[in-house]
Design a protein around this nucleic acid. Sequence first.
DNA 1: TAATCAGCTTTTTTT
DNA 2: AAGCTGATTA
Length: 732
Amino acid sequence: MNTVESLNPEQKKAVIADNENMLVLAGAGSGKTSVLTHRTAWLVNEQGVPPMNILAVTFTNKAAKEMRSRVESLLDISTHGMWIGTFHGIAHRLLRRHAGEIGLDPQFKILDQDDQLQIVKKIVKDLNIDDKIYPPRTIRAFIGARKDEGVRADSLHSSDSRYDYTYIKAFQAYETQLRVDKALDFADLLLYVHDLFDQNEGVRRSYQDRFKVILVDEFQDTNKIQYDWLKLLVTTQNSIMAVGDDDQSIYGWRGAKVENIFKFQKEYAPVSVIKLEQNYRSTQTILDAANAVIANNEERMGKNLWSDGDKGEPIAIYEAVSERDEAAYVSTKIADKLKMGVSADQVAILYRSNAQSRALEEALITQKVSYRIYGGVRYFERAEIKDVLAYLRLIAMPEDNLAFERIINVPTRGIGLRTIDKIREYARDSHLSLWASAEDMVEAKLLPAKALNTIKTFIVMINGMKSLIQPLGLADKIKVVLEGSGLLEFHGSSKHEKAQQKLENMQELVNAAQNFNPPVDVVEEQEMLQEFLAFAVLESGESQADENTPAVQLMTLHSAKGLEFPHVYMVGLEEGLFPTSRSVDMEEKLSEERRLCYVGITRAMKALTISYATSRFQYGESSFPMKSRFLNEIPKEHTQSVRMGNTKPKTFGFGVSPTDFLNKRAKAIASHTSPIGSQYKQGDIVEHAKFGMGVFLGNEGDGEDARLHVDFKGGYGAKVLVAKYARLTKIS
DNA sequence: TAATCAGCTTTTTTT
DNA sequence: AAGCTGATTA
């Protein structure tokens, strides 16, 4: 199939370009993925480029999957030989192949963030670092930031005055520990591939030869090390096409460098630059709003989205009195839409931080709206899942100290800290693994009788499972481990609140293994396990919820990038939350927040609703935020204030437009002083005969007919009361 | 050694 | 609100 005809001139230009370096600046919804997939198809179908000579790199697994399936539908032949994957996925694949060439143990394991943190914690303890001054999280962030910019511990000198010596020391210890554990973190995957290409000319050449065409998606999100290793692959004989949008750069905090786009233009010259500005996704109103917001950023490459579609509906703005009110509004509106025949999966709720999902979930449940949540603790990051995987690891590789430490006393089997400390000590002195040390110590009876017995039982159990498991397939291996480890029984008989959920999660792992499809051709069972373990880290949370039933999607703005929905609700547009309080006094960070807002707005195809609350319960206390500056950046002619109950504004006979009226009211409520005549101030604690204590949020009008907004404690929530009947008592 | 509890801190985004 | 740490009790 060839559908180049369906493309616009700019898209077409990018698709049928010669073997040249190209930068495609693709605005939101401008058909970026179409360009990437059609280019691939055109190369294969028309130019006869074999799929195996193409490398396509994305950032998320979702994007990689989508790309493969869309390419497949355009191709006459199989995409099997084509490399499509995330930076990390491809790096992993390369390293498994070439571990030997750069002195890596081919059995290396991959650490997720939690594993990293555990290691840092251990180091903090070992080095007697004060964790009040140097919290492990901060140290981890330091290490991550250095590695993302390609700086290794051994290239940092203790005299380097840029950094506190303690960080450097911890960094060095961390790197040593990773080598001992034969473990790589996410950044290592990229770093080692860089080293591989940099140091091994033969390997570099072979991939330069192989990849005639390199396609990179979301180029604005590349960090230094990713940029560098791509560069090592490009020669005068092949070409690279970078697709990105500087306005959608939202991962600066993770080391992404928008500047890479500028650098690309210089370092890969001559580069043909193609701008895709025609948007096929959203109404003109939505685009105008997005353009207006992003125009407040400096240092843009400059793009303006346009569409030849309809103007569409104005953007609805809802001012809530609390996060519960906000959630109630959003969920009732969604329920209404579903009743009108909108399918649930056409609707998304987007928020700045995962913590915001809670109130929304509760409200959706009340409305009986089925929803699916993305993010939060991902499936393979759950403690109980990692426990099971640790058993598998220890059984397969007894020298895996990380696995040993994780499960030696999970479920609790009477092996306490004292015993574990002794094993650690023995291991350190004898340079053995913890497992081997435990074996030795049992042999030589180096422990008190009780500890000796429990350890012995543990060893026998692991060894027993080992021989049992050997011939079994992955799913059956897991079944044996669930039973044999005692994990099933432990959680099954636990009266802990979450025990049932944990049990189900663990059972689900058997299914996950059953359905697991290794990305490379695997022959040995051992290799299968290794691929599964890597998959669990690299693709920790993909598609666990069943995707068959349509559901409203809840996710952060970050994870919404690249997606689109006919109906979008963007909630929590409040100063301090979005933009976050940590960004407001730094221009750079504020710009990134604004780009995030731009991403959010441009997810919407037909209808966009934005909401904010004048009071929000967070971090265990009430706050009274002002509405987000981003809201004020949207031209008023594109918005319409809405209220609970009716989307259409009421008519007012005062010669004042409804919008104006509501804006005035919004101001009155958002400001900390109420209009003259009210006896309460925002934030006052008041008491009501029936509802008890509450926080006064604001009022509409004054005198005895004034409507008072109060957020009551004790499960009553936000209420609107008429002043003359309310009989509130002011407490403070 | 294990489980429970009180008091403490900590809050963004994720391959 | 929720998770973590340290102390206390069984």
